[in-house]
């Protein structure tokens, strides 16, 4: 034993790491990867940005953010939670299946004490995450800044995103 106490290395001097997530999908299941990782990066003291583009813009659109859906149409790996048998694609298109799958997934997520999208966005902003909306997507959808969640800092072009993400690790989801 030495006189100097054993102190964890919180890596405070290591400030050069920076991460940018590109959120491009608007389904419930694909909204979470960027949010969970961005949140984890913020907890580690890393400068973190998320760029919402194409359907990913729904994650920060007031009209849609509370109502993202999960469908297993096209998800050929689909099986019930913990289940062994795959669920036939032909069933995925039946009326009510998307609503049912969405309800089930939301319950599983909330059972893990993971917030729904609007609260998650709020939390990430409060933790210092910087949220950006893609200009081309905003124009395509005919939105104004007011249609977007208040946490979104600005609507930026692809070029501006490349500037924002200078020196960052970029993760496309």
């Amino acid at each position: 034993m030495t006189d100097k106490p054993l102190v964890p290395d919180f890596g405070d001097d290591n400030t050069e790491r920076k991460m940018c997530f590109i959120a491009s999908k608007g389904t419930l299941d694909m909204a979470y990867p960027s949010l969970v990782m961005a949140n984890a990066a913020l907890m580690e003291g890393i400068e973190t940005h998320i760029f919402f583009t194409f359907w990913g813009l729904d994650m920060v659109t007031k009209k849609h953010m509370s109502d993202l859906q999960f469908t297993w149409m096209g998800n050929t790996a689909m099986h019930p939670p913990g289940g062994r048998f795959h669920m036939p694609q032909a069933m995925a298109g039946l009326p009510g299946m998307t609503a049912m799958a969405t309800r089930m997934m939301k319950k599983q997520i909330s059972d893990l004490d993971v917030p729904e999208i609007p609260e998650f966005i709020e939390m990430i902003e409060a933790a210092g995450g910087q949220l950006w909306a893609c200009k081309m997507s905003v124009d395509m959808m005919g939105y104004e800044k007011d249609d977007l969640a208040d946490e979104v800092i600005d609507i930026i072009t692809a070029t501006e995103f490349i500037e924002v993400s200078q020196g960052a690790q970029i993760i496309f989801t």
């Binding site: 964890p8 919180f10 890596g11 405070d12 907890m43 580690e44 003291g45 409060a126 933790a127 210092g128």
Partner: peptide
């Protein structure tokens, strides 16, 4: 984040 800068949880 203000009280426990950078890595509050840890």
């Amino acid at each position: 984040f203000q009280l426990f800068p950078k890595k509050p949880a840890k």
